[in-house]
Design a protein around this nucleic acid. Structure first.
Length: 581
RNA sequence: GCGCCCGUAGCUCAGUUGGAUAGAGCACGAGACUUCUAAUCUUGAGGCCGGUGGUUCGAAUCCACCCGGGCGCACCA
């Protein structure tokens, strides 16, 4: 076995090599699809250390009896030095037991790889563009944005760890009607700053206090030049200033969560550069856009609805329910019209695209997937594109649903929540749940019960390890890999769990499911706490055994590597690995 | 009416992409602090995996239909 190769990677290779050998010997037909062959720990540890389903998966296409194939495979697998036994179980599982030494080597691999343990070359350096947050630049971040922000950020880190290049992108919707509303709202605050009694903020404008400083800055810069001027004289100027100010605010909010994007793309700039028009021309040339009549709405029917002719994209060709307009009747681009050009642009600099959206936009997934498939697939090789929906977060206060509205100004800002409970709690809470299920976020509960929060459980495991290492150092003892053979079954159980980390990272990245990392860390922390408490009753089970320097050195080595894995996992989630609590 | 998501212990949720006897936390019962940090651990009880069919060696997982909850269904964003 090579020195710093992880056990997980090594055994995937071993099984593959064993199958090669069977093919070479003519036992197994060549060219079988091995994609479903798995090598993983069995759910019940009593079955062994590793199990493979290879015989069951391949038996049918090979036209063989699973049992017979398993026998042949066992013959190959027992040749591997680290394997102490290989047994056929159930319908054709092969259960492998590994020597303790093989697992102890994994500890050395962790030590050798350090922060790199868990990183993988699976992505082969291909570039993935992850677009997330993309909140409208009309106010501060609120809790409704939070889940997508955290999930997107963790996913970006995960993909990077799995060997992809990652572009973290934020699409700034600075071209629609909502930013005109923002500009008008800023104008009211501007007049207010000049001393005018503006009273209540008019219906339909953003009433939030966060625009007051914008008004003051505008007043300072422009005096009363635009106080009485017609809207046409100041709208673009105020819009530009207000959007810029909102982005500063949003970036600051995101920074509180430790989120930093690589790229902010402006919808207005995209339009100014003529990208949607280029896209339309191309689509028309390929008969994917035509002038046609929009179908009547399927849900509640507005009173003033009337059929109009608009340029429509043939999204029904790609599975959508109806064709979608790319321009409005006033000649402006629809959101979709700009968005398809935007996605085409993203696809130029990435091998794959991932969008993180809120579930309230689920209705538009089909059309944008259709657009990407159409525009990037002309050569028969469409850019892989996934939209990951994060379901709604129901905000609760005192057990009651809490409605937010930016219009009404009664939203809960992300900054407030982070200040209340901390970045790590917010991030971990959002990540200990698969994103496609709805969740409640109850402030009272999160604040008052924060000690029960799983994030502290994981952080505590790390803090315990670090404090033990500090104490040992104070007594002149250090981790040592010289006598790892002194470690017993209880220690090996810990190693076996930690050794799952590399394949977990790959699986989570492939599935785009960062929450798996959070649950793994919770399990690992539980195992560490359980092991630790053995030492409550039996001092000889503690990490530090004063009379036995060799054993202590080995256990400290174990502790140190477990700590490394916890740290690496927390880093993926953007949660701090604390030194003490 | 249509589309997407969800339904697993009393509650909040996992379940390694179809694997072996379905698991955690909270709450409830019983225990462990003179400690390397008890923000911890050990242990008990708790299940029609929403329902019914189907696919196969094998289903909580895939398919169909139903039931229940959420989101969406304008040229908004």
């Amino acid at each position: 076995m090579t020195d710093s190769k992880t056990l997980h990677a090594a055994f995937a290779g071993h099984v593959s090599a064993a199958l090669d050998a069977l093919e070479a010997a003519g036992t197994l037909p060549g060219g079988l699809n091995r994609a479903n062959v798995a090598v993983e720990p069995p759910r019940d540890p009593a079955h062994g250390d590793l199990a493979t389903n290879a015989a069951m998966v391949l038996a049918k296409p090979a036209g063989m009896n699973p049992r017979a194939l398993a026998e042949a495979l066992v013959g190959e697998l027992t040749k591997i030095p680290a394997v102490t036994s290989a047994e056929i179980a159930g319908p054709g599982f092969i259960n492998l037991r590994l020597s303790g030494g093989a697992w102890l080597e994994e500890l050395r691999a962790i030590a050798a790889l350090g922060e790199g343990y868990g990183r993988s070359s699976m992505g082969a350096g291909t570039t993935v563009n992850v677009e997330y947050v993309s909140a409208n630049p009309t106010g501060p971040m609120h809790m409704g944005h939070c889940r997508g922000a955290v999930v997107g950020d963790a996913l970006a880190a995960l993909l990077e760890a799995a060997g992809h290049k990652v572009i973290r992108e934020y699409y700034v919707n600075d071209a629609g009607a909502q930013v005109d509303v923002l500009a008008r709202s800023a104008h009211v605050r501007y007049r207010e700053a000049l001393g005018e009694a503006v009273g209540e903020i008019p219906e339909g404008l953003y009433p939030g206090d966060y625009l007051i400083p914008i008004g003051q800055e505008l007043a300072k810069e422009f005096g009363d030049t635009y106080a009485k001027a017609a809207e046409g004289e100041w709208l673009v100027l105020f819009r530009t200033r207000a959007v810029a100010a909102m982005l500063v605010m949003i970036k600051a909010d995101l920074a509180l969560l430790g989120i930093h994007h690589d790229l902010f793309s402006s919808e207005a700039e995209l339009q100014a550069a003529g990208k949607p028009a280029e896209a339309e021309a191309w689509l028309r040339a390929h008969d994917l856009v035509y002038d046609g009549h929009l179908e009547a709405p399927k849900g509640k029917m507005p009173d003033d609805w009337e059929p109009v002719e608009l340029p429509l994209f043939r999204s029904t060709n790609f599975g959508d329910d109806q064709d979608r307009p790319i321009k409005k009747s006033d000649g402006n681009w629809t959101y979709f019209g700009a968005d398809l050009a935007y996605h085409y642009q993203k696809a130029q600099s990435a091998d794959a695209l991932v969008d993180i959206w809120g579930a309230d936009h689920a209705g538009t997934v089909k059309r944008i997937k259709a657009a990407v498939a159409a525009m990037t697939g002309a050569d028969g090789n469409p850019t892989p594109f996934e939209v990951k929906l994060v379901q709604m977060v129901q905000l609760m206060k005192g057990g009651q649903p809490f409605k937010m509205s930016k219009r009404a100004g009664n939203f809960v800002t992300l900054a407030d929540v982070v200040e209340m409970v901390g970045k790590d709690v917010v991030r971990f809470t959002m990540l200990t749940r698969k994103p496609d299920a709805q969740m409640d976020f109850d402030f009272d509960k999160v604040v008052e019960a924060s000690k029960d929060n799983p994030v502290f459980y994981v952080q505590y495991a790390h803090a315990r390890i670090r404090s033990t290492l500090r104490k040992a150092a104070g007594e002149g003892m250090a981790p040592s890999g010289d006598h790892l053979d002194l470690l017993g079954e209880e220690e090996l159980a810990l190693v076996k769990l930690a050794a799952q980390f590399p394949r977990l990272v790959e699986a989570a990245a492939a599935a785009r499911e960062p929450h798996r990392v959070a649950f793994f860390l919770y399990d690992l922390a539980g195992a560490l706490h359980g092991y630790w408490n053995l030492g409550n009753d039996k001092p000889e089970k503690r990490f530090i055994v004063a009379q036995d320097g060799k054993l202590t050195g080995a256990r400290l080595y174990l502790a140190s590597q477990i700590g490394q894995v916890v740290r690496n996992g927390l880093a993926l989630l953007g949660v701090e690995a604390v030194e003490e609590m």
